[in-house]
Amino acid sequence: MVSSLAVDNLWGYAIAGYVLTGTAIGLYVLALLARARRARDRALAIGGKRRGSSLP
């Protein structure tokens, strides 16, 4: 059961959880955006090189 000692100040645990969740989601979104950019640049580079044209 919950001890009275443990429940005096528990904001720290809650805030740690929210910060962790926000950070994890934010980093995942940034990683996905970076992956999308890399894939698009790679496809454009390969296509441009094959046709002998320079990239925009």
Binding site: A39, R40, I46, G47
Partner: peptide, 29 residues
Amino acid sequence: LVTLRLRVGRLEERALAEALSPRLGQPAE
């Protein structure tokens, strides 16, 4: 997140298609 991840998947497949098939160059770009 799934929508974003699907776009990444599509772009990576197109990049692969560009690399593997010279004929796909123009349409893929």
